[in-house]
Design a protein around this nucleic acid. Sequence first.
DNA 1: CAGCTTTGACCCTGG
DNA 2: CCCAGGGTCAAAGCT
Length: 330
Amino acid sequence: MDMARCSPVCLDLMVGLPMVREPSPARCTPMRTEADIGSPACGGRAASMPNDEAKVLEAKLTQMSEENRRLTEMIAYMYANQMARHSLEGGEAGEPPASTAASPTSPAGKKRGRESMDTSNSGDAYSTKKICAVGAEHVDVESPVSDSTCRRIRIRRVCTPIDPSDTSLCHTQVVKDGYQWRKYGQKVTRDNPSPRAYFRCAFAPSCPVKKKVQRSAEDSSMVEATYEGEHNHPQPTRNSELPSCATPGGPVPCSISINSIGPTITLDLTKNGGGVQVVDTQPDLTKMCREVVTPEFQRALVEQMARELTSDRKFTEALAAAILRKLPDY
DNA sequence: CAGCTTTGACCCTGG
DNA sequence: CCCAGGGTCAAAGCT
């Protein structure tokens, strides 16, 4: 897996998920949510059914939607747990949930900061840097703090290709990760003639995440960025980068879930290879879904969805950008 | 003028 | 204790 070139792209289209907002009454295309499918107002199959039957189906669909949402959350949770476990075993891993962010560090003077780090271990991830396994691109580090609790910090290495002739040290522009960083130091290290730049997350003063950026000693066309800690705030610039599909709730998995009919199909662009994952929902629910929707309707729905997606310029641009990032560099 | 970057100095840790 | 090296601070300069 090459997590190094995986840029965070949010393409959560909410396809098939129960819509919070009201569907446009003016348009009644086959691209509908589950709730819409059962809605008589849209002229679906339920429109010709008796009222009580339609209500029963609608209730079932609502229940399915809720089940689907719960399962999606459960899968995301399990996936994060599994990745965290893998990373502790020495391998690389995907994105664990950001909810375990370290407690904020106060921007105190250097003396006070070091004292607090040495004695209390109160929320400072850097007291455990010795445990960090260098070489992995993404490492979760468990900190053996004084008490029995184990604090897990994340140290992640990301390599980004740059123009070798570019001697600029403004690597914040090179390693675009969606966050805003403030440079607070630069140092020439012994093992690398290129200076190492130190960055702090500039979005939230309490955010403990730091980033070290240095041109690779072996390959000057590569820039190594080392992230330490986890952000305790939503990604600030993601919305501006992808206004059409970004969710305001913060860092969410980059995935497209198409699950209005049958199994959930997740195109996860945060994972390497951008794999398409088919997650089968509960068999009875899937069966029930197939009973409700005819193959013709399924085909029409897929075609309409494809039309809608390809006609959305922002979507195609975002998709193309995400795919480009997945291609190996030649 | 505010915010950001630069850079020399300082602090801490490990050998 | 001394030294080397990494990490951080903060004043000065810049935009």
